[in-house]
């Protein structure tokens, strides 16, 4: 029963990571920009949602305000800053977007102050439900899993069934060619970036009631997000989904069961706890190293 609950927890963490990494992998894969500031849009989503929800009392209005806010800020950043960096070295992009992290963190502190914001689970999703076998599970976490799966489905349909999706896929494979075929590349890039930051904003909204809404909240998620897209294969949304779920599961299960495993193996419980904790926090990176040693380009590389 505990194992099943932990698997659900892992799935839920994975789905959150997927919302973050889908946008990042698109931007990285198609525009070839390393966007370290992706976590900032997650933070913007959470802050706007928390503010609007607190003012109006409606979580849905909060979502409705947060998604455009994240998408529009993203498109503005793309238009004003990233556009100038496409032809520059990756190091320049890293520097510029790393600077953006500080900019956004400080901007948030100037607007909202240093205290973390309050955001509650919407009343309809509060509490927990009994799944089979007496397992109590928070409704809100189930809702996150559902939203993540819906988004994955939406992205799948977008890419496989629409013209925009076809262009995005084509752009990931060969951007010179689709440029030559008359596709408006700058517009396409702005749209992709906006879509990516919208998804990051959505992840931020979903995270608000679970996590602390505070300046810099996106930075810690960002590291795991990069692990996900490297495992999944850069530029592949399918890879991001599989990678995110795998990373979520590995992280959660390692945190849940490694300490106990070490207690069985080692005589001293306190050193077992410390070893278990240390190894659990490394587990995702070890997993990444294992995947890369077998498939150096990730599980589903966008281009061979």
């Amino acid at each position: 029963m505990l194992v099943f609950e932990q698997i659900l927890n892992g799935l839920q963490l994975g789905v959150m990571l997927f919302l973050m990494s889908a946008g990042l992998t698109l931007v990285f894969g198609i525009m070839r920009v390393i966007n370290l500031a992706h976590g900032s849009f997650y933070m913007i989503g959470a802050y706007v949602a928390a503010t609007v929800t607190a003012r109006t009392g409606s979580f849905l209005l909060g979502v409705a305000a947060a998604l455009p806010a994240a998408a529009l800020t993203g498109m503005l950043v793309e238009f004003l800053i990233l556009r100038r960096l496409y032809h520059r070295d990756h190091l320049d992009q890293v520097l510029a977007t790393f600077g953006l992290i500080f900019f956004f963190n400080e901007l948030i502190r100037m607007i909202w102050g240093r205290s973390p914001l309050f955001m509650e689970v919407p009343t309809r999703l509060a509490g927990s439900v009994e799944l089979f076998g007496g397992l109590q599970y928070p409704v809100y976490r189930l809702a996150i899993i559902l939203v993540g799966i819906l988004v994955a489905l939406f992205l799948y349909l977008l890419f496989s069934r629409t013209r925009l999706g076809m262009r995005i896929r084509a752009g990931a494979t060969n951007r010179e060619m689709i440029g030559a075929l008359g596709v408006n590349i700058p517009l396409l890039y702005t749209l992709i970036f906006g879509l990516g930051t919208l998804l990051a904003g959505l992840a931020g909204v979903m995270a608000g009631p679970l996590f602390a809404v505070e300046a810099g909240m996106g930075d810690s998620v960002l590291i795991l997000t990069f692990v996900v897209i490297v495992i999944g294969g850069i530029g592949s949304v399918r890879g991001a989904f599989i990678g995110a779920v795998l990373v979520g599961l590995v992280d959660t299960l390692a945190r849940a069961f490694l300490p106990e495993l070490f207690r069985l193996l080692l005589a001293s419980p306190s050193s077992a706890d410390r070893m278990g904790a240390a190894l659990a926090s490394m587990s995702v990176y070890i997993f990444m190293a294992l995947v890369l040693s077998v498939k150096p380009a990730g599980l589903f590389p966008a281009r061979e």
């Binding site: 505990l2 932990q6 839920q12 810690s220 998620v221 992280d251 904790a277």
Partner: peptide
């Protein structure tokens, strides 16, 4: 039980489940 988490950790679902059991 004694659990040591990563510094700055955001998600505690795994820890809370272990705590419950």
């Amino acid at each position: 039980g004694e659990l040591y988490t990563t510094l700055g950790q955001a998600d505690y679902a795994a820890e809370i489940a272990a705590l419950r059991s």
